[in-house]
Design a protein around this nucleic acid. Structure first.
Length: 479
RNA sequence: GGGUCCGUAGCUCAGUUGGUUAGAGCACCGGACUUUUAAUCCGGGUGUCCUGGGUUCGAGUCCCAGCGGACCCA
């Protein structure tokens, strides 16, 4: 670093700017390689970071990296002139330069740019990580993502794919008549999910606000307002632990469709995910961490109780009371604490013993009403809701349902949640009078859907950790 | 929150049963070289061994605590 600073001082002393204002490249590296036949012998200008330098005395080779890839630079002293050639050899790996010259091919057949002029656009004062291994240390890859992106092409590929995934989701929904909207991230009442929120404070209004745990209640207010198909893709915040599948801020897609329902949203979900997989991986068969997964619709469907029966042998279908539910589970040999409700027993058995088995895409449907405070009840069995959660690789990747649009029933649900909150469940839903007021004006029957973009990206890029698909994952502060 | 593992040069990593002056490759510095592909050849080691205690004649190595990270579990 010391030497690089000295070079910088020397350049300034010699009257040249080591951070040039601008340079206009005419081509990217991959364009030159792909169009060599028509570009050979023609002048081009390229810019990027100098990644390798192989100097042979009066002839040097360099590798220049731009957003598209790398191109070799062919640099001869007799072409560049003695002074400029000397300056070229003074460059350090990592410097950002612009070069112009003719497209040519070397004796060994490498497509190159024969450098006739070059300018230093930005001096790199710090050395790059090792040129062959790149940056391996995962902590540094997360903390200094830019270094990871410079040196590890596979990391760059993940984030390019992530961008394409989001773009394809937009295309899919917009094509179906959805409009994209933006609703507040600062909520006076955090709602739409069972989760602990982050709290913040608005000084001018002197009020506490919460970072949203879901955009759901605002999007449904838009259905009241007359929009029929809306979606939002954005950050959502949950004040919970960090793991390979959880980041405190993550990206959620939510979509709502007036006159849709649980059934139509399931179809939308499987078609959307299959479409995105097709677009970014070329097919609907993927391999995740060595495991083959077939995303081709239609996906298997099973009710939550049938799934519990299948994987645990506990039959909760005819059960009427909390006590009967606990008894049924205990009889099958499961440890169940006193005081757990029917819904709790179902959640517990499902999460522990069913989820890990749901590797191939599976819609689990008909969730207990107690754990689904915003979903419409099933008309045939009001203990359950017309709700679905697709599982892939044992993960819940989405969640959707027929939206509850009865304000009286919605109030009852919120009140039931308030009882749980009072009993110590701080993830229970809060009362939201303004939302009920909106429903009182009438919300069309509708289907809703939420998909976790990060987990979907993990699946489609074969990434083992959620931090590998988030550019700047949350890390502890380091002094 | 619990468990296991990791932290050595800018980067990638060695470092033996505790042993005297802590190493290699890349990067970097000086030199040679007009067709290289992680170029090669000659010369040069640039360090808070994560931090703080402890054990010991002696600690990168053993013990304790802390910090940071990874994975598993809750």
């Amino acid at each position: 670093m010391r030497f690089r600073r000295e070079k910088l001082q020397a350049l300034r002393a010699a009257g040249s700017d080591p951070f040039m204002a601008s340079f206009k490249p005419t081509h990217h590296a991959d364009e030159i390689k792909e169009n060599f036949a028509s570009l050979e012998g023609h002048p081009v200008a390229v810019a990027g970071r100098l990644m390798l330098l192989r100097s042979q005395g009066k002839l040097s080779f360099g590798d220049l990296q731009d957003a598209s890839g790398r191109i070799q630079l062919f640099v001869r002293q007799d072409v560049l002139g003695e002074e400029a050639y000397k300056a070229f050899r003074e460059l350090d790996l990592g410097d950002i330069i612009g070069v112009s010259g003719q497209v040519m091919k070397t004796r060994r057949g490498e497509i190159s740019v024969q450098v006739e002029n070059f300018v230093l656009l930005a001096k790199a004062l710090r050395p790059l990580p090792e040129k062959w291994h790149g940056l391996r240390d995962v902590e540094q890859r997360y903390r200094y993502r830019y270094l990871d992106l410079i040196t590890n092409p596979e990391s760059r590929h993940v984030f390019v794919t992530r961008s394409r995934i989001i773009q394809e989701i937009r295309n899919f929904l917009v094509e179906r008549g959805y409009i994209e909207v933006e609703t507040p991230m600062l909520h006076p009442i955090p709602g739409g999910a069972a989760a602990r929120p982050f709290v913040t404070h608005h000084n001018a209004l002197d009020m506490d606000l919460y970072l949203r745990i879901a955009p759901e209640l605002y999007l449904k207010r838009l259905l009241v307002g007359g929009f029929e198909r809306v979606f939002e893709i954005g950050k959502t915040f949950r004040n919970e632990g960090v793991s390979t599948r959880h980041n405190p801020e993550f990206t959620l897609l939510e979509a709502y469709e007036a006159y849709g329902d649980c059934e139509s949203m399931m179809q939308t979900t499987e078609q959307l995910i299959a479409h995105v997989a097709q677009a970014v991986t070329g097919g609907t068969q993927i391999v995740y961490q060595g495991r083959a997964i077939d995303l081709t619709p239609p996906w298997r469907r099973i009710t939550m109780l049938d799934a519990i029966l299948e994987y645990t042998g506990v039959d909760l279908r005819g059960v009427e009371s909390d006590e009967e539910a606990r008894e049924a589970a205990r009889k099958a040999g499961f440890k169940i604490e006193d005081g757990l409700s029917y819904g709790d027993v179902i959640s517990h058995l499902f999460e522990e013993y069913v989820e890990p088995h749901l590797i191939q895409p599976t819609f689990v449907v008909q969730h207990p009403v107690e754990i689904s405070p915003l979903a419409k009840q099933n008309p045939k069995d009001p203990r359950f809701t017309d709700r679905f959660e697709p599982f892939i690789n044992g993960w819940e990747v989405a969640n959707g349902f027929s939206e509850l649009n009865d304000p009286i029933e919605q109030r009852r649900r919120f009140e039931a949640q308030m009882v749980q909150r009072a009993a110590g469940d701080d993830e229970a839903h809060r009362m939201d009078e303004d939302y009920i007021r909106a429903l009182e004006y009438g919300m069309p029957p509708a289907g809703g859907l939420g998909i976790g973009i990060d987990r979907l990206t993990m699946l489609l890029t074969d990434s083992a950790s959620i931090r590998d698909v988030i550019l700047f994952p949350h890390m502890r502060r380091r002094l």
